[in-house]
Write a protein that binds this DNA or RNA. Structure first.
Lengths: 248, 248
DNA sequence: CGGGGTGTTGAGTCCACTCAACCCTGGTGG
DNA sequence: CCACCAGGGTTGAGTGGACTCAACACCCCG
């Protein structure tokens, strides 16, 4: 086991980005009545570690873009079993599942002190009606969320415990890379239990899988600090990425 | 075991409905140059049992609304393992996962001889830019797909084999009801293997679960013919529908 | 110093899987 | 007409991977 380094808080916003960049002005601008046509209101909100952004069953008021920090979204069954359906990092948009029914089906919880941009949905929808490019971005955002869901579905339906953990790590690594962070050494923002609830595994199983990968020299694991030591082997273990046109 | 009744082909379109109703004119109308402004082109296509509507990796050309028949969508890993991600019945729209990346991530296969309406996507997108109401419908459609995905995710991550089968049957029953069919007696369009690939189970496990429910008098199962005999008990076994604001 | 939250590891259990046999039905061709 | 075969479904016996239960280590904080 490695010595556990200090859990220095990694700022999660090396490359500031926003799905609605260029279309959104903070409320301050609105108050000063300099709001330009072609933009929509957008209020900052700080969310403390463990606080809910919104909860399953809540009416849809706003959708949220993450500016800094991280979140998990989850669905809870009546008996308390929790399924984490995704993690949101800066640039991601939360709340899209509510657009159809006007009610949130998932609950989104901050994994650390975080900062979001609140987009009042009815105003946003109106703006989409005036702004084709914005509407198009929004469609793509939703479609990507569908595709991400299908990725998790195939993980849950098809993969062994180790494959799930490996696939999760590779996916997280890829997302960090896109945000401008190191894809090979990173800090997990979530507990083993969150990871397990995401991957359909118990926390002990996640821990065992990580230990196994560590012992084989593929990873260096020290609590939530992860270093990828053998990326090729990791990819081989995940191996079965979705295939295109089948040959059979 | 019941005697197996004749597999009479149930027409799947008691209540004709379409997500784009009122906005779409068949190509025939276009040829006659009577296409009104505010509508978009829409070509019928017949798909035979087992044929693909589109395949993972294909470029996005069109999205499809099911007019009659039924389909499964699936994701296949490199090693051939298949995960069914959903079933489409009349009124459903297939292909929404491709809008973001311009490539289909799933493959959609006809479960029987079926009939779809082909909507060329770029024309449709343009039309959405002119027609706010249409764009809004489309957003809801996509959002509902996200919500449905989250339902399957929590099923795969949290439920036992029997719970999965029960939840699947109740969901299928509800959809048939919405289409105007009997929710208590129906014909499954898919094989045990398709159901298993959807629920993350092997076909033998699906068969055993159905036999168990049959033996306890909760269902009457005869091949693909299903009759729900004790709906309350079935709901109790599924029991754990997603919960709202949690009390802990 | 005690306690709660988090993480690791071990021992034993059980549910869904694997492998296999068998049945039924519908289609095809001699 | 019947023989044959392939696809789909059911059931049984045995296995194994992830689970349950449990103990313990570590860290931060009051």
């Amino acid at each position: 086991m490695l010595s556990v380094p200090k859990a220095r808080p990694i700022p999660l916003l090396a490359r500031p980005m926003c799905a609605f960049e260029g279309y959104c002005r903070p409320v301050a601008a609105q108050r000063k009545e300099i709001l330009e046509p072609g933009t929509f209101v957008c209020a900052r909100r700080l969310v403390k570690h463990g606080e809910l952004l919104f909860c399953a069953g809540d009416d849809l008021h706003s959708i949220y873009t993450v500016k800094a920090g991280s979140f998990k979204s989850s669905v809870t069954l009546e008996d308390g079993r929790e399924q984490v359906t995704g993690f949101y990092l800066p640039g991601d948009v939360a709340g899209l599942d509510a657009v159809g029914s006007r009610r949130h089906v998932s609950t989104v919880t901050a994994l650390e002190h975080s900062d979001v941009c609140t987009v009042e949905y009815s105003a946003f929808e109106e703006e989409c009606g005036r702004n084709t490019d914005l509407a198009r971005r929004f469609s793509r955002l939703m479609s990507n969320e569908i595709a991400a869901g299908q990725g998790l579905i195939s993980l849950l339906g098809l993969m062994s415990a180790e494959e799930r953990v490996v696939t999760f790590l590779l996916g997280f690594s890829t997302r960090l890379l896109a945000l401008g962070y190191s894809p090979s050494e990173f800090h997990l923002r979530m507990t083993r239990e969150d990871i397990g609830d995401y991957l359909g595994l118990k926390l002990e199983t996640v821990s065992r899988a990580l230990s196994g990968l560590h012992d084989r020299g593929i990873l260096a694991v020290a609590g939530r600090e992860i270093a990828i030591r053998d990326l090729e082997e990791l990819k081989r273990l995940s191996g079965n990425t979705p295939a295109g046109r089948r040959t059979r």
